[in-house]
Design a binder for these strands. Structure first.
Ligand code: NAD
Ligand code: NAD
Lengths: 215, 215
DNA sequence: TTAACATTGTTATTTTTTTAACAATATTTT
DNA sequence: AAAATATTGTTAAAAAAATAACAATGTTAA
């Protein structure tokens, strides 16, 4: 295993995006890609793409660009775990279901293997191949199945309580989609996403754009 | 109207988060808040909070901190449009519905006023107060209702086509949740979000965490 | 064969963002 | 009344990220 000097956080994020874009290209039977093509697909600059690729220690060829398969494989070596990691969805409502049906079958190294809910109509059913357990089973299943990552899509009021259970159950990474910010111990990796922040940012720049037009 | 020297993009993002957190505090009948409290809620440092607050030209009081209502009002002045902006959702599937039911009634300045779909079972119905039109009506409704922002939740294959229609219809900001990156002209503000990037980033850091433990 | 060209890889520079440092000061305690 | 304390506001420094510059080089064209 080659030693990889630690990569900038933003580069990690982009590696995931590169792979997504490269998989699309592969689907179109493309073999090679230039930095400016990849940049164009993802609204980045070619320099940034080349720099990221340099950081992960890959090299393209001068007149052909980068070999798509090779690059996908290398990105996998960097961001994936060899054994693969299991993921659970907590709260099988609209958002939880959307996430499962989106994710399903997309990645081999990450897989959603369990959902949890309190609603008896959802518990003990299988949704899109994913079994739904009662939330009381959380700790048991998380441990027995060895699931390190959870996507939280319960109502905001439940977020704190559920987070606590997740941490107690030994979860190491949480993706919090509830509107309620939560707290976790330092050894747990937390990411929060709120659509309203995205929208308000867009609204701000749309507003700015209008103003500029009027200057 | 005071002139606001242009704010860092990251600050804009955090302003939206501050408001969300402040609204939660207001709901608990809290009147004042310290920088370290706000920081704690959002996993930021107190310095960063104070710096942002300085940038928007607000001042707290020395032993009480910041007046929550005042701050919410000021953030509104900066990131909201006075008249309010209308938003449309394109694709009324799981994700589109999740977004509508989440958003509904949350904000006075942004409001989802229309959805579009091709599925005849969804068209001409009202979902959570939002009327769903056939996608053929896109341009007509966008223009007549004066909707500048769209949330795109159609299947990935449709993303390019739908984006083109949106741009032609005069949309100024797009939040793309499909897994397919799209292109827009320079005067249109585009933001893309993909849950897989978030998850893969979490997986990477969970993996790193494990490695560190083993050193 | 040579010149023009397009592209990569890498170092240097600039810009943006975060963090640190610390003076100022109102409040509480002694 | 003086000292201690906790907090803000702001400038300075550091760190992170993005961009620019440009040498190297294989490919194509003249
Ligand atoms: N971050 C975003 O962009 C975004 C977007 C949409 C919705 N949301 C949020 O995501 C969450 C889910 O949204 P939704 O539309 O799917 O809501 P929903 O009501 O359809 O689903 C919530 C599910 O959680 C279950 N649940 C409730 N308490 C639970 C508990 N203690 N343990 C396990 N399951 C429990 C419910 O039975 C339900 O099935 C909400 O908090 C919503 O505000 C966030
Ligand atoms: N970014 C993310 O994190 C994330 C998460 C989940 C899903 N997704 C993506 O979001 C999209 C929607 O997911 P979903 O689970 O709601 O899918 P879905 O199939 O439930 O919904 C898609 C809807 O779009 C409608 N539609 C299809 N073509 C259309 C067109 N040309 N114009 C208007 N409407 C059209 C369909 O009738 C359907 O109602 C998919 O592309 C999915 O991959 C993204």
């Amino acid at each position: 295993m080659t030693i990889m000097p630690k990569l900038p956080e933003k580069t990690i994020e982009r590696l995931s995006q590169y792979r997504r874009a490269l998989l699309i290209c592969l689907g179109k039977n493309k073999q090679y890609i230039f930095s400016h093509e990849l940049a164009g697909m993802l609204h980045l600059t070619p320099v940034q793409v080349r720099r990221d690729i340099m950081l992960i220690g890959y090299s393209g060829t001068l007149r052909q660009g980068y070999e798509i398969r090779e690059m996908i494989a290398l990105i996998g070596k960097i961001i994936d775990s060899e054994e693969g990691l299991k993921v659970a969805v907590i709260g099988l409502g609209n958002l939880g279901r959307a996430m499962i049906s989106y994710f399903n079958g997309k990645r081999t190294k990450l897989s959603i293997v369990a959902a949890f809910d309190i609603n008896q109509e959802k518990v003990n059913r299988v949704y899109a191949g994913v079994p739904c357990y009662h939330i009381d089973m959380l700790s048991k299943i998380i441990r027995s199945e060895n699931i390190p990552i959870a996507i939280m899509t319960v109502p905001g009021d439940e977020a704190a309580k559920v987070t606590e259970s997740l941490v107690l159950a030994g979860i190491k990474g949480i993706l919090n989609y509830t509107p309620t910010p939560v707290n976790v111990p330092a050894n747990t990796y937390l990411q929060e996403y709120d659509m309203i922040t995205s929208l308000e940012k867009i609204a701000y720049f749309v507003k700015q754009g209008n103003r500029e037009e009027h200057i």
